[in-house]
């Protein structure tokens, strides 16, 4: 088992390095000169050269990458062109908000999908099953940025029950979970974000539980006179590692994929930050945000894998 864990961690390292190379290369995907954004349009060639030299853009690429990486490792991701604040501070503050949103959405999705998937698996082939399957396909097909707008139209514009944007009253920058005036800001974003995970987790739960229910030990349980609830409990216990793995993956996807939903609800998370950086061509923020989000995703995947190994003895043996 320790061998497996060590190997899995060792496997994540080259991927993390690859991620840093990709994020470093993003600057060079941008059209024109990397320092153009810092300079007035009519800057003379000498000034451009001078700036290129001070920022180190005249040195060979591998050297530039190494310098950039060494700075990134100690948390120096450069300075935002727009706000002049360190990128790392902005990203970390936004990251906390996104983690909160994604975690809430995955938890909500899990509670819905768990029940639906189990029902569909238990009544396999019935109308319930078909309904749940259709619902899960709708969940993954619905454009969540559109769903967000529709929810805003219904609950904010027409009914005026919930606020349309922001994370607290009066453009508040802090969030208090136990305060209703704050909490009501999070309801619509979480419902919007949970649609895709609901679809995915329902699908996995359904297939995992119905696979377990097809096993022979289930017949044994029934033959011994266990009531149906106990049978389902046994099936769920066996299907759980798979379901939790999908949950972890979905959490990772939401962390990176919430850009559209955060933009709609003006939720000050990483997606919102990224969108702002794109609009203002703030490349250091763009690069830093993507780097942090990708690393979070790599670590989430690692944790999911390790967790699955820990709870499912079948993996250890192989």
């Amino acid at each position: 088992m320790w061998y497996y864990i060590a190997r899995r961690i060792a496997y994540a390292i080259p991927i993390a390095i690859g991620v840093t190379v990709f994020c470093f290369a993003l600057v060079f995907l941008a059209p024109g000169n990397p320092v153009q954004m810092l300079l007035p349009a009519d800057a003379s060639q000498e000034v451009v050269d001078l700036i290129m030299k001070t920022y180190g853009f005249d040195r060979p690429l591998p050297v530039q990458y190494w310098t950039w990486l060494m700075r990134a490792v100690v948390g120096d991701l450069g300075v935002s062109i727009q706000s002049n604040r360190p990128v790392i501070d902005e990203v970390l503050r936004a990251l906390a908000n996104t983690v909160f949103l994604s975690f809430g959405a995955v938890m909500l999705a899990f509670s819905i999908a768990f029940v639906l998937g189990t029902l569909a698996a238990y009544y396999r082939g019935s109308a319930t099953d078909r309904g749940v399957t259709a619902l899960s396909i709708v969940g993954v097909s619905i454009p969540n940025y559109w769903l967000g707008i529709v929810l805003v139209i219904i609950f904010a514009v027409e009914l005026n029950w919930l606020p349309a944007t922001g994370m607290g009253p009066g453009g508040s920058e802090t969030f208090d979970l136990f305060n209703w005036s704050h909490f009501k800001h999070v309801i619509l974003p979480i419902i919007t974000l949970c649609m895709v995970p609901v679809g995915m987790i329902t699908r996995t739960t359904r297939s995992a539980v119905s696979e377990v229910l097809g096993n022979e030990f289930v017949n044994t349980l029934r033959a011994k006179g266990l009531d149906e609830l106990a049978v389902i409990r046994h099936a769920l216990k066996n299907a759980m590692p798979q379901i939790l793995a999908v949950m972890g993956l979905q959490f990772g996807y939401l962390m990176g994929g919430s850009i559209l939903v955060e933009t709609i609800f003006n939720w000050p998370g990483t997606g919102f930050l990224l969108n702002k950086a794109i609009l203002t061509r703030d490349i250091p923020v763009l690069q830093g945000t993507i780097l942090i989000l990708a690393l979070v995703f790599v670590v989430t995947n690692l944790i999911v894998d390790l967790f699955q190994t820990a709870v499912d003895p079948r993996i250890k043996r192989s």
Partner: peptide
């Protein structure tokens, strides 16, 4: 390496950087 990015994030990163 590209699997380490959620698909929307990767699309936004590339097209955002390219303008």
């Amino acid at each position: 390496v590209f699997y380490a990015f959620p698909s929307i994030l990767l699309a936004v990163a590339i097209s955002g950087a390219m303008g």
